[in-house]
Simulated scan of single mutants.
Amino acid sequence: MIIADWVWGWALSRGTPDPVTEHDGYRIDVGLPHHRVRYVLPDPRDAGPRAAGLTEPGTWLKICGTAELDSRWTVAAPEYLMSTPVKPAQPVTPPDPYVVELHSAGKVHDVVVRTRNGEHAAKGRVAVHHNAAVMDMVETDPAHQRRGLGSVVMAELSNVASNHGAARAVLVATESGRALYEKLGWTVESPITSAHLKA
């Protein structure tokens, strides 16, 4: 199940405790002041009942599909659960003056693109859980956008995923990120409704 792959890989990427399976989905105890706990619901029909019983600020919902929530909830811009088969990517040479670094810690691997003088330009992370790779925190610094660095990062992440035995890659994309991933062959599996309770 793709959503389960994403839940477990995201928790691994973010260094949280293992997800807890609940009757309507998954709970991740994130433990941050403004992101205390996250519930991931595969079925949007469960969103209303689950949301009604939640009151603590810093509680987040990630819902597969669209859902109506009451006014206590701040709903974010649309996101998309996406996947693609993992194949070894052709190495992409970053344009001058950029260099690519890989930093690994267990099952979590960070790709960083810098200028030759060390300035940060782009980054991404992949966490491999069983045969699934979750791509996370992929971003390009605004000063270095439109130079193909996002594709460089994704190619490197794909190679890492392949080298560690992943058969499928999964991520949750923003609207702007979706366009890049579709160009790279990713498929939208579901829209995601993201919402949280503020203090």
Rank of each mutant, 00 (worst) to 15 (best):
49 P>F: 04
53 G>N: 14
105 A>T: 14
110 D>E: 14
103 H>Y: 10
132 A>N: 06
74 T>P: 07
110 D>M: 11
117 N>G: 12
55 T>K: 05
19 P>R: 05
140 T>E: 04
136 D>T: 14
87 K>D: 14
66 T>C: 13
95 P>V: 12
80 Y>S: 11
95 P>D: 11
18 D>R: 03
82 M>C: 04
170 V>R: 02
73 W>I: 13
59 T>S: 10
73 W>M: 12
94 P>H: 07
46 D>C: 11
13 S>E: 07
134 V>S: 02
96 D>P: 07
174 T>C: 02
95 P>Q: 13
192 I>Y: 01
176 S>M: 15
72 R>Q: 04
3 I>C: 08
15 G>V: 10
78 P>Y: 06
60 W>D: 03
40 V>R: 07
168 R>M: 07
85 P>H: 02
101 E>I: 03
70 D>A: 11
150 G>M: 10
86 V>F: 01
13 S>R: 04
112 V>G: 06
196 H>Y: 15
69 L>T: 10
65 G>A: 05
187 T>R: 15
188 V>S: 10
31 G>C: 11
17 P>Q: 11
62 K>N: 13
40 V>W: 02
196 H>N: 13
160 V>P: 06
130 H>Y: 04
139 E>F: 11
196 H>S: 14
31 G>F: 09
51 A>N: 11
79 E>H: 14
32 L>I: 06
128 V>F: 01
76 A>R: 10
50 R>S: 05
197 L>M: 00
31 G>T: 10
190 S>D: 08
38 R>A: 05
52 A>C: 07
133 A>F: 03
63 I>M: 07
29 D>K: 10
118 G>I: 07
193 T>M: 01
18 D>F: 02
150 G>L: 03
98 Y>P: 00
176 S>A: 15
14 R>H: 14
178 R>D: 10
75 V>I: 12
69 L>V: 06
55 T>W: 11
12 L>T: 15
193 T>C: 06
99 V>S: 09
99 V>I: 13
175 E>F: 09
31 G>K: 07
122 A>W: 00
99 V>T: 12
178 R>C: 08
55 T>P: 03
67 A>D: 05
26 Y>R: 08
91 P>W: 02
138 V>H: 10
12 L>C: 14
123 K>A: 05
176 S>T: 15
177 G>S: 07
139 E>H: 14
16 T>Y: 05
59 T>D: 07
102 L>P: 04
85 P>F: 08
181 Y>R: 06
11 A>H: 06
124 G>I: 10
180 L>K: 05
179 A>F: 00
47 A>D: 04
46 D>T: 12
192 I>N: 01
121 A>M: 02
181 Y>S: 08
31 G>A: 06
81 L>A: 06
42 P>L: 05
98 Y>V: 05
169 A>E: 00
130 H>A: 11
12 L>M: 13
88 P>L: 08
190 S>M: 03
41 L>A: 07
89 A>M: 02
167 A>C: 09
37 V>F: 00
4 A>H: 12
26 Y>N: 08
195 A>K: 01
